[in-house]
C-alpha cells in the first residue's frame, strides 16, 4: 500500500503526519529538535511543490509520501486519486489524505516568512504550528486503514 499525505507545502504538516503514521513521532508533546530532525521537514523548494517526497516505509511495507498542494488541497487530492487510478489501475492499494484542514495559522505565516527569506522567524513559526497541528494530526492518522 502507498499513503500520500497532502498539505500546503508538502514539507511541514504532511511530514509530521507521515512520521506520526510511521511511528517515529509518538507523543503529542514535541520539542524543536524532534521536529526539525524529521527527514525532509522544512527542506522546501517552492518550484517542486506537488512532487511526492518519500518519507519512509513501515514494517508492513506501506510506503509513505508527502506532497504539497498550496491552497488546492481538495482539488489535488481528487487529481492525485485520478492520476494514480490511471497509472496504476487497481494493482496496489493507495490512500491520499488531505491534511490541509489541520494546518495551523502559525504554519501559514511561517511559509510567508520563508518566502520573504526570514529563516529564523519562519522556523519559530513552524515549530509553534507543529505543536498545534500534532494533536489534530494524531486524530487524522488514527483513521487511516492499514
Amino acid at each position: 500500500m502507498k499513503v500520500f499525505f497532502i498539505c500546503r507545502s508538502g514539507r511541514h504538516t504532511s511530514v509530521i503526519a507521515a512520521f506520526l503514521y510511521l511511528g517515529r513521532l509518538t507523543g503529542t508533546k514535541v520539542n524543536i529538535e524532534e521536529i526539525f530532525s524529521l527527514p525532509g521537514f522544512d527542506e522546501i523548494d517552492f518550484r517542486e511543490t506537488g512532487r511526492p517526497f518519500f518519507a519512509g516505509a513501515n514494517s508492513s511495507g506501506t510506503e509513505v509520501y508527502t506532497m504539497g498542494a498550496l491552497s488546492y488541497g481538495n482539488m489535488l487530492k481528487r487529481a492525485a486519486d485520478e492520476v494514480i487510478k490511471l497509472l496504476n489501475g487497481n494493482n496496489t492499494k493507495w490512500q491520499v489524505i488531505d491534511t490541509s484542514s489541520c494546518v495551523s495559522r502559525w504554519t501559514v505565516w511561517g511559509l510567508r516568512a520563508k518566502r520573504l527569506h526570514l529563516g529564523v522567524l519562519a522556523k519559530v513559526l513552524f515549530f509553534l504550528g507543529a505543536r498545534k497541528e500534532i494533536i489534530r494530526l494524531a486524530g487524522v492518522v488514527r483513521t487511516i486503514d492499514n
Partner: peptide, 30 residues
Amino acid sequence: YVIGRRNAARVFENMAIGMAQVYGFCPRKL
C-alpha cells in the same frame, strides 16, 4: 484526457510526473 486544475498548473504537473515515477510509469509515455 482533459482535466481542470485551477491555477495550480505547476503543482499538477509536478504531481503527475512524480506519480509516474513512484509507480514506475515511463515519463515519456505521459
